[in-house]
Simulated scan of single mutants.
Amino acid sequence: MLLIVLGELHISKSVPGSPVMNLVQRVKRKVFQPREVLEGYENPELVETIFLKTINYKPGGNWPLVVGVRTVLDFGGGAGLHYKTACQQSPDIRWAVVETPAMVRRAKELATDRLMFFERIEHAAGWLGSVDLVHSNGAIQYVPDAIETIKALCSIRPAKLAWHRVPISEGEPKREIQTSYLSDNGPGSSPASKEKLVRYERNWLSGQAFIQAHEGYRVADRGPDPNERATQQFRFAPL
């Protein structure tokens, strides 16, 4: 999701399935283009779709990134999809999701003493106490001021930061209008009852500005992100 104060964002897309099913879906979408368009990530129908898909999502496999980690600030973590994966191997992990006001309101019914939802970075960090990991997957490009948001995340002095699916521009930063299918938002492959389009603004970040915003940190790892074309993933550690 996205927009408003530092740290209010969301987006997580996943469309697993067999090649045959994906082909059928692509053909169907091409022939029967949805006419209704939802604007932005505060839309109630989009929030509800992500919320329900997260509840039904059944994660599998291990997640090496969170091994030995006690506290995580998940920037743009939706309704807690990444927490569901993490707590399979680390059931005592404490997880603070920073999201849009609309998602925070809807997801609060999923909150526990180990999973909480916040609109602001500093409130999430305050609840965690100390932050072992800042995690963000496909979210920073949807906030109004990505660089200031990154600086705010670094100011809470996490032990490390991990970024996934960050669109990096070779030159100057740029903005574009991006459109997705409603059913592609949120985890899992369950389609929406009626397919619609979702339209939102997406920012391509200057690679130099992105790295420089991490004051007090160094790039520990960087490379193409295999989960989304033309995006990169990063790991930052303290200097």
Rank of each mutant, 00 (worst) to 15 (best):
F236G: 00
W163M: 04
R202G: 07
N56E: 14
S189G: 13
K108G: 05
M1R: 05
M116E: 11
M1F: 02
G126L: 11
K53F: 06
A111Y: 03
E45A: 02
I11P: 04
V37R: 04
R235Y: 01
L73D: 09
A86K: 00
S206R: 11
T179A: 03
W204M: 09
V24F: 15
E39I: 09
R157S: 09
A125D: 07
N62A: 15
P16N: 07
H214G: 05
E48F: 04
N185R: 01
P44R: 10
E228L: 08
H10P: 00
R94Q: 06
V31D: 15
K58L: 01
G7H: 12
S155L: 11
G68Q: 11
H82A: 06
M116A: 13
F234W: 01
L46Y: 01
I156N: 00
A139L: 14
R199F: 05
E119F: 05
W204P: 03
P158S: 02
R165Q: 10
H123A: 11
T54E: 10
N185K: 01
G76H: 10
W127C: 14
N62D: 15
V134W: 04
E45D: 11
K151D: 04
V98D: 08
K84W: 11
Y83T: 10
P44G: 07
V27H: 12
V72I: 08
S169V: 13
V20H: 15
T100A: 11
L81F: 13
V219N: 06
D92H: 14
R229V: 07
G207M: 08
L128F: 15
R35N: 09
A102M: 01
E170H: 05
A192D: 14
L46Q: 01
E170W: 01
L128H: 15
A230D: 09
Y181S: 09
K160T: 03
N22G: 15
I121A: 14
E148L: 14
K194L: 02
G77V: 12
P167A: 03
G7S: 14
S14D: 12
V131L: 13
E119N: 08
H82V: 06
F210Y: 09
P44V: 03
Q33M: 07
Y200A: 05
V67K: 14
K174Q: 03
R70D: 15
Q33F: 08
A139F: 12
L110Q: 07
S12D: 07
C154T: 13
V104C: 02
V37Q: 03
G207C: 06
W163L: 10
E39F: 04
E119Y: 01
P191V: 04
F75P: 07
R114T: 01
V5H: 12
D113A: 04
R165Y: 02
G68A: 10
P34A: 09
V67H: 10
H135E: 12
L182D: 00
V134T: 03
K151S: 08
I121Q: 10
S12G: 13
K174N: 05
L2N: 12
A125N: 12
N185S: 00
Y142S: 09
D92V: 14
W63M: 03
S14M: 14
A230M: 03
T71V: 04
